[in-house]
């Protein structure tokens, strides 16, 4: 009796995590048929029981939000998906061991840019995550990563850059030419985890100098 080949039903079962929002995703090959249903389970590494994820049982979409279920930063998790097609064929696949601290990528920081006559001020806003402390307080990225800092650069007529950086939230580039457009980027960096956010790209124009008019 040959084991039935069901590899077409289920592929690439993995977590995709950004700013600690942990989404389980998977694929199937086209020939697997549109009416295949999927059921998700998860467990903490080191525990015996698998838990069924409510809201992701016998679904037809190929993703499931497991943020709440995988929210303990010091724990490691597994998830698995079982696919069943209309012909009754089934396949189950498990993720690699998942740690949100290791795997999450950091989205671009949220920034307000305030152009002035000879300077540009940048205010970086805290980034809240879905992670809560015991008393319900929502954690920011800065709370979770103690060594998180920001690195800002401003490109000066394609020849050099101004750099600013630090853990504070307010920065200002001084000594700029009035009424001039500048491009720049801001990234969040977490050295100990070798994490670097996707850059926040900005374009800003200094105000005209009204003093002599």
């Amino acid at each position: 009796h040959f084991a039935e080949d069901t590899s077409d039903l289920l592929q690439h079962v993995k977590f995709q995590s950004s700013n600690f929002e942990n989404i389980l995703t998977w694929d199937s090959r086209p020939e697997s048929g549109p009416d295949t249903v999927y059921s998700v389970q998860y467990k903490t590494y080191g525990e015996t029981e698998w838990q069924a994820k409510e809201g992701c049982q016998r679904i037809t979409r190929k993703s499931c939000n497991l943020t709440m279920e995988t929210g303990n930063l010091t724990d490691f998790y597994y998830a698995r998906v079982t696919a069943i097609d209309v012909g009754g064929r089934s396949a189950t696949k498990m993720t690699d061991r998942f740690s949100s601290l290791q795997h999450t990528i950091i989205k671009p920081p949220d920034v307000t840019c305030i152009p002035k006559v000879r300077s540009i001020q940048m205010i970086v806003h805290p980034t809240y995550t879905p992670i809560h402390t015991g008393n319900g307080h929502r954690l920011t990225l800065e709370d979770i990563f103690q060594d998180l800092f920001y690195h800002l650069d401003l490109h000066i007529n394609h020849t050099y850059q101004m750099h600013l950086g630090g853990k504070q939230r307010e920065f200002e580039f001084f000594g700029l030419t009035p009424d001039t457009e500048f491009l720049g980027t801001i990234v969040s960096l977490v050295p100990t985890w070798s994490k670097k956010s996707i850059p926040y790209m900005y374009r800003a124009k200094t105000l005209p100098d009204q003093t002599w008019t």
Binding site: K43, G46, E47, T74, Y78
Partner: peptide, 9 residues
């Protein structure tokens, strides 16, 4: 063996 973690809490 996903049910055993050696370096546990």
């Amino acid at each position: 063996i996903t049910s055993v973690q050696l370096l546990r809490k």
